[in-house]
Design a protein around this nucleic acid. Sequence first.
DNA 1: GCCGATTTGTCCGTATGTATC
DNA 2: CGATACATACGGACAAATCGG
Lengths: 242, 242
Amino acid sequence: MAHQKYTQIYTILKQRIESGAYQVGQLLPSENTLIVEFSCSRNTVRRAISELVRDGYVQTHQGRGVCNIFQPIEQASYTMGTIESFRETARRTGQNSGTRVISFERCRADDAIAALTGFAVGTELFRLGRIHDLNQRPIIYNLSYLRVDCMPDLTAEIASGSLYRYLEEELGMVIVTSKRMITVERATEQDEKWIDMGEYNCMAVLTNQVYNSQGVMFEYTQSRHHPSIFRFQDNAVRRAGE
Amino acid sequence: MAHQKYTQIYTILKQRIESGAYQVGQLLPSENTLIVEFSCSRNTVRRAISELVRDGYVQTHQGRGVCNIFQPIEQASYTMGTIESFRETARRTGQNSGTRVISFERCRADDAIAALTGFAVGTELFRLGRIHDLNQRPIIYNLSYLRVDCMPDLTAEIASGSLYRYLEEELGMVIVTSKRMITVERATEQDEKWIDMGEYNCMAVLTNQVYNSQGVMFEYTQSRHHPSIFRFQDNAVRRAGE
DNA sequence: GCCGATTTGTCCGTATGTATC
DNA sequence: CGATACATACGGACAAATCGG
């Protein structure tokens, strides 16, 4: 893709910033200057800039200009605001990765599962346990509940590959939104059975509720990460109304 | 504030959604309908909607409409996209909170500090250590480095109150952007000296680089939380270009 | 499968307000 | 004070996706 004008401008400006074209604290060219350079409308430039703000590259200041705040320290480790699978992360960072299915069964949401996941009581679910290996070392223990009616033909074999590739390419399902929560929990017996915890006795727990294009939550996943490989980054922008 | 039209529309629509006016999966009124209702332009409606998307209330679908995905179930979990602040946690759980300064000194960034914080070597800094108590129990160990030239008159006394209130109200500094990172680390001797860790041997570490309106990073803070009280939430939206 | 109506996505141009210098 | 720069808001045009007939 990247066929839209604002995406092209966003990409060009981002590259300039990352390549060090502007010092930290320096102002970028004004909107009017960029309008001339890219021969486009003001809205298009502004949209590109607003995405740079969202991604933490620049700040805007009314009456002053657009200010570079990018520091090449340790960027690009874990892009936030997007949904990225374990496999994508591994590929991007150039490491070996593997996924093993350790349990796969059908169940029905009882009170406990409903309270945990947010699925309604009685919903038919697949319960899927997986281990992710990074460089042959077990690193993430993954427990998912998946709506049967969204993927009736799911098998353990399919789940051992990329679940998202199957859902998107085979079923044509479009994943749009996900709600995430990060907590830190004591490692359970189950964790220690599968993950080599070393001297750590806690897990970084990423809880994920994923919605498809119909607006229905079809997946609940708890990813229990070994602390040493867990990192989460984002940028917070001050909003309009305080 | 909230004087802008798009903010008003955003607030009204959000209230309708939260009050259960639309079922989960149901479409909101079309943009044209909203234009008539609020007698405004299409862009204004679209901007309000895009903020609802950002906050995880709705999804948009070209050719179909705007779909409600808000579930009141997890409303109990508070503000989104933010880390529940220490004070908020205390208020929510109805507990006492307090802040103690345990160290306050001036220093200059050496290689180690520069590598840790991102400040240039040689920058004059305040080094501020604080403990947050919840119900008289120490819960968060807080280590901050602050640029002296941004707040030359800072004292330990001021730091024992709300640092941000001082910076914003007294110095007129506007905080715009902050880059955050969440990791999980082994508790250090320093941690255990100050925090009652119980059976946990890890800390939830929130690293924060805060920028003012000049685009200069004026604060680096490492907040080391007791795992039992740490929680982070946000929404991820699939972007345009893959 | 096609067509047309509806709906959101992108892009343009313009005007006015407000903060900074 | 004027010039510059970003923020908000309006209006219009066309593209792309969806849905019903």
